[in-house]
Design a protein around this nucleic acid. Structure first.
Length: 584
DNA sequence: GCCGTTTTCGGCCCGACTGTTTTCAGTCG
């Protein structure tokens, strides 16, 4: 099936080659915007009629016909034509810091440079400095940048990025004259991976701060440093940007540097229509050329309010309709970490976890949760010491027994039960009925055909003994691709049968994605945010799961974890289509 | 290429930093 991700990649590449070709920059942007839209769109675009496509902001006749062509042929003739005009290696070349489409094209046309290798040898031979706009310094800096063009293109997962960020923020608190400090960028928006860290600082006068920042022990290399801005490469192997603004501009700057870029562009277009203009220093009347009297700037809330909008949570700022919703009072009231009353999916040392059931129960209590379903792996997952039927029954007894030791939190027994190759469960029905919460996941035969995998997961999602389908895509970010599956079909099957879907907060999984979670809710399914904790400390992964839920626009009523213990047991005992109610 | 209670044509967000230049282009976010 032609996925939205695949469509997005085509438009992204279209934009790239058009830019190389020196096309109208606004046409380029239109393709980039279409790519963003496609990537974040919950429903498969191929299933939407041409007329309905035109209603989507950023999609007009041209893009809609491209989608139709992609859908029909699996390729784009315009894209094929562009690919023939330029060598593929230019895609690598623009990853080098300081090289954009203009210079890449010049390098290709003047020196036939079409790969990182030919770029390196030309720079080493001193051949670049003769070109218009190139000099010795640029040549030398490019030569250095080539070295880590590869690693710089890798993105860090959100959890690791948050750890590095908190370290940098702690260090920056000691900087001279700091009045306020905040993370911005994609990390603040809760994106699953982060390309660079954005640190925002409020202070009067930035030079001393920039200096302090560039000399932090965490810094490996300074890429740029001016009066109000610095860019460094950290020893943790990620780029970190610092911006310093005066305190009265902190909110405007926080809004500006949180992005996304697409959200900000749309916001500024809105401002423009109202005779206003926004930059990182504040919201101004367009007529106020001096930019001396901001209408807003100290807080983000002010900025949105003065634009006639409700406050938009950072997680929603992707220009996917949130601005319209904010204008008409239709923004969802997003689920919050404080709304979560417990976890469904985790592991003890009976299988591949690090701590005992009792320690996990105590940790759940320390999280402030009202209830927790303590889990483990089922018998087929040998590498994780999956539990035999006898061991499973014994651990169910143990969970009941340790309840007395942690009266503050209601304990349940959950199991992550393997979905076998044919879509049946790893325990017989009679055994499964003894488990309080059944999370069904795929851990084997990842290379099945899309049709087989889809049938397998649909069968599990429609199984009345399954409460929650676990990590639907099976991807491990940066390590393993998602297996081939028609997620839409599985979400439909689950929604029809009243089965919930997991939003797994493990940093490498983050699965469902925000787009699939949104689709699940649109189809009428419930979601469960989970930690998949293999150690007590990993209960904190709930933070990531909730971020995904928020990015998906989920409210308390969409998320099972917001139920009280009483409400949850009612949900677990709910009548399922085609079967008798489960007994508990 | 997209878009429109000022417009169906002519606009399309804004600023910092670098290196190349004597006023600016390219890149980046």
């Amino acid at each position: 099936m032609l996925t939205n991700a695949r469509i997005a990649a085509c438009f992204e590449e279209m934009a790239f080659w058009l830019e190389i070709a020196g096309e109208n920059p606004f046409r380029v942007r239109a393709y980039q915007r279409a790519a963003e839209t496609a990537a974040g769109f919950a429903k498969p675009l191929t299933e939407i009629s041409q007329a309905k496509l035109l209603e989507i902001p950023g999609i007009g006749k041209g893009i809609a016909s491209h989608i139709a062509e992609l859908s029909a042929k699996g390729s784009l003739s315009d894209l094929e034509a562009l690919r023939k005009r330029f060598p593929k290696g230019l895609l690598d070349i623009v990853r080098v810091q300081g090289l954009g489409p203009k210079r890449a094209r010049l390098l290709y046309e003047e020196l036939r440079i079409d790969s990182l290798e030919s770029l390196r040898s030309a720079a080493q031979a001193g051949k670049l400095r003769g070109l218009a706009g190139f000099g010795e310094k640029l040549e030398a800096s490019l030569l250095r940048s080539i070295e880590f063009a590869q690693q710089a293109s890798r993105r860090m997962n959100l959890w690791d990025a948050r750890l590095v960020m908190s370290d940098i923020l702690a260090a920056m608190k000691a900087a001279p004259g700091v009045r306020d400090l905040a993370p911005a960028g994609s990390l603040r928006r809760g994106k699953e991976t982060v390309g660079d860290l954005d640190v925002l600082c409020a202070a009067q006068g930035g030079a001393a701060l920039v200096e302090f920042f560039t000399r932090l022990p965490q810094v490996e290399r300074v890429l740029a440093a001016g009066e109000t801005k610095a860019v460094v490469w950290l020893k943790s192997q990620i780029q970190c940007d610092l911006r310093v603004v005066p305190p009265q501009s902190f909110g405007a700057a926080l809004q500006y540097f949180t992005g996304s870029k697409e959200h900000n562009v749309a916001l500024r277009e809105l401002a423009q229509r109202k005779g206003l203009t926004i930059n990182e220093y504040g919201l101004f009347r367009a007529a106020d050329a001096s930019r001396k009297k901001p209408l807003a700037g100290r807080t983000e809330e002010e900025i949105y309010r003065k634009l006639g909008l409700d406050f938009i949570a950072p997680e929603l700022r992707e220009n996917r309709g949130e601005i319209d919703a904010a204008r008409t009072g239709k923004l969802p009231e997003l689920v919050r970490l404080e709304d979560v009353r417990g976890d469904f999916h985790n592991h003890s040392d009976y299988t591949d976890g690090q701590e005992s059931l009792l320690d996990m129960a105590r940790a759940a209590r320390d999280m402030g949760w009202d209830w927790v379903a303590l889990g483990d792996h089922s018998r087929s997952l040998r590498v994780a010491k999956g539990l035999s039927i006898e061991d499973l029954r014994r651990t169910i007894g143990e969970v009941r027994a340790i309840q007395a030791k942690v009266p503050e939190v209601k304990l349940m027994r959950s199991m992550e039960v393997d979905i076998l190759k044919d879509g049946t469960m790893d325990y017989p029905d009679a055994v499964i009925e003894e488990i309080d919460v059944v999370v069904a996941s795929v851990h084997s035969a990842f290379s099945q055909s899309e049709a087989d995998m889809t049938a397998r997961l649909c069968r599990a999602a429609a199984n009345a003994h399954v409460d929650i389908v676990g990590h639907l895509s099976g991807r491990l970010i940066g390590r393993r691709e998602a297996y081939a599956v028609d997620a839409q079909a599985v979400l439909e099957a689950g929604a029809r049968e009243g089965t919930a879907f997991e939003i797994n907060g493990q940093p490498q999984r983050q699965d469902l994605t925000d787009a699939h979670a949104r689709r699940a809710v649109e189809l009428g399914a419930k979601l469960a945010v989970t930690t998949d904790a293999h150690a007590a400390a990993q209960f904190r992964y709930m933070e990531l799961a909730v971020l995904i839920a928020r990015r998906a626009g989920l409210t308390r009523k969409d998320v099972l974890n917001c139920l009280t213990y009483g409400e949850l047991t009612e949900w677990l005992a709910r009548p399922r289509p085609g079967t008798r109610a489960k007994s508990h």
